[in-house]
Each structure stands twice: as structure tokens, then as C-alpha cells.
């Protein structure tokens, strides 16, 4: 049992090493073929063809932290649920306890999930799940064409 687990993770290690080596190999391969003629213009940071203003390493929106916190809350929940999911429906244990085992484990876990759903509901009620919506500003154009004509075209197509 332990030996097969070790060899299983050995294979996983093989995957990790193999894929890293593969990427390094392709880096080396393209290094053999590609030209290397850098100049100052070429090495500037791309900003739609304008000269770059400032650096990108600055502040960013707080909301990303809240999403990360919510994510951690639920990932931890899922981590706790996985081991439970493999045992609650064990046929042998259920037969030995005359069905008690399964229902007891389920009720226990439903309580756990319920508490976490309360957390989600709290975040929902506080509005943390709402992202900034773009404000749609209809453009105003100074034109002699009446609005109905535009509407007629829009409705037709």
C-alpha cells in the first residue's frame, strides 16, 4: 500500500520534472534558431504605441482581495468535505450500524455546509459579490436626424 503510493507520487514527480525539462528544451531550441537584435525602442514596454507612462507596479482594486478571501473560505470547506465524501456512504459501515452511520454523517455535514452558506449569504447581503458595473452613458450627438429614424432602423435590424 505505502509502496504503491510512493511509486504513484514518483510518477507525479516524473511529470513535473519532465514538463519543466520540456519547456527548457524548447527555450534552448528556439535560442538556437532565433535572431537576437535588441534595441532600445524594441525593449520598451508596450502601451498601444504610446510612450510608456510610469510603472505598472502600483495599487490595484481592493475587490480582488475580497474575492481571494471568499475563495479561501470555500476552498477550506471543500478540503474538509473531500475526506468525508469518501466515507459517509461506505456500504459496510452502514450495514453494521443499520443505516445510522450514513444519515448521522450526512446530518453532521449538512450543518457544517449550512454554517458556510450563512457566510456566503452574509457576503451576498453586504454586497461583496457585486462587482463594479460600468455606467452606460449614451452618447449625445448633435444631429438633425430625428431619433425616431434611428429607432426605426434599430427595430428593423
Amino acid at each position: 500500500m505505502i509502496a504503491t503510493e510512493v511509486s504513484a507520487f514518483g510518477e507525479i514527480l516524473l511529470y513535473i520534472i519532465g514538463s519543466v525539462l520540456f519547456v527548457l528544451l524548447t527555450y534552448f531550441g528556439s535560442w538556437l534558431f532565433r535572431p537576437h537584435r535588441p534595441n532600445e525602442e524594441k525593449n520598451t514596454t508596450y502601451e498601444s504605441g504610446e510612450d510608456t507612462v510610469g510603472t505598472a507596479w502600483g495599487q490595484f482594486n481592493m475587490r480582488f482581495y475580497i474575492v481571494a478571501l471568499l475563495f479561501i473560505l470555500f476552498e477550506v470547506e471543500i478540503i474538509f468535505l473531500f475526506p468525508w465524501a469518501t466515507v459517509f456512504g461506505d456500504a459496510q459501515l452502514i450495514a453494521e450500524t443499520d443505516g445510522m452511520w450514513g444519515w448521522f454523517a450526512i446530518v453532521e455535514m449538512f450543518l457544517f455546509i449550512f454554517i458556510l452558506v450563512l457566510g456566503l449569504a452574509y457576503a451576498w447581503g453586504k454586497g461583496f459579490l457585486n462587482w463594479d458595473k460600468p455606467e452606460v452613458i449614451p452618447p449625445k450627438v448633435d444631429t438633425k436626424v430625428p431619433d425616431q429614424l434611428y429607432d426605426a432602423v434599430n427595430n428593423r435590424y
Binding site: V20, G29, W31, F33, R34, P38, N43, T45
Partner: peptide, 21 residues
């Protein structure tokens, strides 16, 4: 494969090639 590999002058030189790996 033949394309020149450009690393921007202001990029983080160590982390930049690490990310695709």
C-alpha cells in the same frame, strides 16, 4: 520558433521566463 524573443527592459528578468514554465 524563429521569432526574436523580446524581454522588455523594465520587466523582472528572473520571473519573466519562469512564468511559462
Amino acid at each position: 520558433l524563429m521569432k526574436e524573443d523580446i524581454t522588455p527592459a523594465r520587466a523582472d528578468k528572473k520571473l519573466f521566463p519562469l512564468a511559462p514554465i
